[in-house]
Design a protein around this nucleic acid. Structure first.
Lengths: 148, 148
DNA sequence: CGAAATATTAGGCTAAGGCAAACTATCCGT
DNA sequence: ACGGATAGTTTGCCTTAGCCTAATATTTCG
């Protein structure tokens, strides 16, 4: 094994443990939010791709438009999404997440800020510096990855 | 703002972006797995707490034992969990995840290894060293946090 | 032995999701 | 500006997962 491979393995294992430790936090909202799976999928789709029309949503989920109307109705009633007119095409009703639903999906997908802050509070200034450098390096790799 | 607070803020923001970028990966299995919300909750509970009896599971989810039997039946049929006797109490049927379900929940909760590996492949050896140091520091903070 | 605990089965109910068909409103090519 | 195509909703009907209570079996343990 090259030293490079060894480093990568060490990092991956550490990251895995870290994620594992935060899994409990992320799983919480799944228990407290009273959603069906169809509803959850739609919230995720909207969170990842932004607002879109019902037709597109129905096709993505492999469901008829009539079915989608029903699902969206219930999500509107529970204040997770809202409908508004598409200024570009008035036939379309754009579906978008309410701020409350953005927060909910963030808790499910993004990590527990509280937990992270608590961990960081245990570190020395020097250690924080190393973490910050590492974060910056990953940011650059991420940026290059998205526009090579 | 102290330099410490500045460092923490920089780290948190970087981590948030990083998680955001991986969110798509993690959301995938929610779309492809054909589960109901009750089923998902049970898989999560088993993944986080390990195998347990139906009674305990029913109480955790706030549901009657008869209901739980039905849900477990369907999860067994779809090969997500299995039942086995509890050697300590033969009245109890321990419910545990199948290897397939462990893999599935890992994909939902833990992060995309492939994506991570790809990002790391873009880094120099020096940069990898910084990341590895940072990972180790976080590991220590994590260990201290769990047993202070 | 007998009460208590664990699980399953049977029977019955509800709500979410699934569809097709009919209808309205809007868009856009000719 | 007419007319087909597209987006959405409504209606009516069906299926399934989940939910319960009550009855039954099995095992534990005082």
């Amino acid at each position: 094994m090259t030293s490079r491979e060894a480093l990568v393995a060490r990092i991956m294992e550490g990251q895995r443990r870290f994620q594992e430790a935060m899994a409990r936090d992320r799983a919480h909202p799944f228990f407290s939010a009273n959603l069906t799976m169809s509803q959850l999928k739609i919230l995720f789709a909207l969170r990842l791709n932004g607002a879109c029309g019902g037709q597109e949503l129905a096709q993505t989920m492999g469901v008829s438009l009539a079915t989608m109307t029903g699902i969206i109705d219930r999500l509107v009633a529970s204040d997770h999404v809202s409908r508004r007119e598409d200024p570009k095409d008035r036939r379309v009703r754009l579906i978008e997440l309410t701020p409350q639903a953005v927060k909910l999906t963030d808790e499910m997908i993004i990590q527990g800020e509280e937990f992270q802050r608590q961990l960081l509070s245990r570190l020395t200034l020097d250690e924080l510096g190393v973490i910050a450098d590492a974060t910056d390096i990953m940011q650059r790799a991420l940026a290059e990855d998205q526009s090579p």
